[in-house]
Simulated scan of single mutants.
Amino acid sequence: MAVWDKNLLWSFMFLLAGAVGQTVIYPLTSTCAVRGSTVTLPCTFTPRKSFSDGWREVPLKIVRVRWCKNHEICQGSTPSVFDINSTNSDPRYQYLGDMKTNCTLQIRDVQQGDSATFRFRMEADHPEGHFINRTGVTVRVDDGSKIIIISSSDDKKLSRGETVTLLCASVCTFHQLEVTWFKDGHTFSDTGPSLRLHSLTAEDSGNYTCALKKNMKTLSEPYSLQVEAGAGGNLPPIPGVVFVVLLAVIALVLFIIERRLRAAEDQRAAEPS
């Protein structure tokens, strides 16, 4: 084989290896987010390490990463929701990745305008290292109007001392929701999607509701929780003991009276008529 043919073959092999090794992977190609909540778009990428200029292998270095909305190429002056080289990015879009393998994007305070397809693009110090996965991640935004409470227990009547967890969720998701919890109209300090009630007492009985922290119009239907005292629970410890002692004394007195009555009857029966 001629020297020129060998060089051409090696160049083709380097090009093929670079193309195969260069990837952007979206574990989720579509997701749902509640308006006002936070959604995370997982993403990983593998940059191209080098390319051949026909004579030698030239190393590549990633110098720019960016996310665009509703644009298949995301290059040049295309508006970005995040650009590592720009200081004008919307603070709602947080890049949780790096310049090596992680390209995860987080969207906070999701708005209706975030219903779109987001794509990640990496750029190297040479155009041979530029790459974008056009599949992207499609986000569907739900207004969160259907907020419900899900309980870890199927029984709404629980006994004193038990534990129950209430989950505030929407038809879309319950992950990363910031909510406000209420009991009989009074606000809890908890803001997470789950509310854990342990060592239940009668004071925990009541109607529980929740709503998105930034949208009180999403208030859920009340969830009624009733904590039962249980067997003997209506009596405090000390009066309960006294009650048992009294029962024993009464039983003893009745037993003594019964024996005396029987003895009297036996004596009368033994007397001559």
Rank of each mutant, 00 (worst) to 15 (best):
R134K: 15
I149S: 13
G144P: 11
V137K: 02
R119G: 02
V137L: 06
T138H: 13
S153Y: 03
S152E: 04
T135K: 14
G129Q: 01
I149A: 11
H130D: 13
A124H: 06
R119E: 01
S153D: 06
S151E: 06
H126S: 15
K146I: 12
E123M: 08
H126W: 13
S151R: 05
K146E: 15
D125K: 09
S145P: 00
V141M: 00
I150W: 01
G144D: 10
E123A: 02
D142V: 04
V141P: 03
D143Y: 12
M122P: 00
R121D: 00
G129M: 02
T135N: 14
V137H: 13
R119F: 01
G136T: 10
R134P: 00
T135A: 11
S152A: 04
V139E: 08
I150H: 09
A124G: 12
R140Y: 14
H130V: 05
I132W: 09
V139H: 08
I148Q: 15
E128A: 08
G136I: 03
V139A: 02
T135H: 13
G136S: 10
S153G: 03
A124P: 09
H130K: 08
M122S: 03
D142N: 10
H130T: 07
I150T: 14
D143I: 08
P127T: 04
I147K: 03
I132A: 11
I150Q: 13
S153T: 04
R134C: 00
I149C: 11
D142R: 04
E123C: 00
I148H: 15
P127K: 07
D143R: 11
H126E: 08
T135S: 12
T138C: 03
H126R: 11
R140M: 12
R121F: 12
S145E: 05
R121Q: 11
I149E: 14
I132E: 05
R134T: 13
N133L: 04
N133W: 10
S152C: 02
I147H: 02
H126A: 12
H126V: 07
R121P: 05
N133G: 10
P127V: 05
F131S: 03
N133P: 10
A124D: 05
D143A: 06
G144C: 01
D125V: 11
R134W: 07
I148Y: 15
I148V: 15
T138D: 09
T138L: 04
R121K: 15
T135I: 13
I132H: 06
I149P: 15
D125L: 08
I150P: 00
T138N: 12
E123T: 03
D143P: 09
D125M: 09
I132V: 14
S152G: 09
P127D: 00
S145V: 01
E123W: 03
N133V: 01
H130W: 11
V141W: 02
G144Y: 12
E123H: 02
D143V: 07
R119S: 00
S151G: 05
E123Y: 04
E128N: 11
V137P: 03
S152D: 08
I150V: 15
V139Y: 06
A124V: 09
